[in-house]
């Protein structure tokens, strides 16, 4: 009974904060446009950097795709608390009797929406310009699980870096080393999609395990980061 009520309140609070963030972000800035452009640009630049040919494209392209995703994500993650930092204040939200985990959940979902939108735009472009058969149903769980991993850690560290004077520099420095496993897993899983290997490892399982561990640690520790 009580848990049902708590859950419902948690859901309502999460939904309200998410709604507010999406609305602010859509009205004020087109950061997701910048993220999308950045991801596309990265994909084009990798093409020159690696001198892609027919014989090496399948090996190199998944790495290029995920690095483009990660870099574009960092742009969006840096704006996780933008609505609060610029015209409001996180304190003002903390004054309300709101479950701190609901704030984390809403910020995480918001990041997933924006990163997901960017991925949705760049994937077809990637498939076209690299001429690879990645637009199958198999790509969905890979992108989804990979993005959850990046955003779970990214949202937590956006709060940590946001407390410092060097927000923009610190965020990638802290996040990149921590998300190495998810990037490796996602790259390998994407490669497996293009040219399936016999006896390949359960990369999706690795990413999923990573997601679960980091979601739970982030949910527990988030409150320590944002409030006294």
């Amino acid at each position: 009974m009580i848990t049902m009520i708590t859950l419902r309140r948690f859901g309502a609070q999460t939904a309200s904060i998410l709604w507010k963030d999406l609305r602010c972000e859509l009205r004020a800035r087109q950061v997701w446009m910048a993220m999308g452009m950045f991801a596309l640009l990265a994909l084009v630049i990798f093409n020159f950097a690696f001198d892609l040919r027919v014989d090496n494209v399948a090996a190199v392209a998944p790495g290029a795709l995920w690095i483009a995703f990660v870099f574009a994500s960092i742009l969006g993650l840096g704006r996780t608390f933008a609505a609060e930092q610029e015209h409001g204040s996180l304190d003002r939200l903390l004054l309300c009797p709101v479950d701190r985990k609901a704030i984390y959940a809403a910020k995480l979902l918001g990041n997933l929406v924006f990163i997901g939108a960017v991925e949705l735009i760049s994937l077809p472009v990637f498939a076209a310009i690299y001429n690879l058969p990645v637009l199958t149903g198999g790509i969905i769980p890979i992108v989804l699980l990979g993005t959850v991993g990046i955003a779970a850690i990214g949202t937590l560290f956006a709060a940590i870096a946001g407390n410092t004077r060097a927000r923009e520099v610190l965020l990638p420095l802290l996040v990149f080393p921590l998300i190495v496993p998810v990037v490796i897993g996602a790259v390998r899983a994407t490669q497996g999609l293009i040219s399936p290997l016999a006896g390949d490892l359960p990369w999706l399982g690795l990413i999923a395990a990573f997601d679960v561990i980091f979601l739970s640690i982030s949910a527990v520790t988030f409150a320590y980061v944002i409030e006294e």
Partner: peptide
């Protein structure tokens, strides 16, 4: 928080890189 997350990351990192 970083001290906790960072250390938990070590075994996962090792595992993923081994694989």
């Amino acid at each position: 928080v970083l001290g906790i997350v960072g250390f938990v990351d070590v075994p996962i990192n090792y595992l993923s890189i081994t694989w």
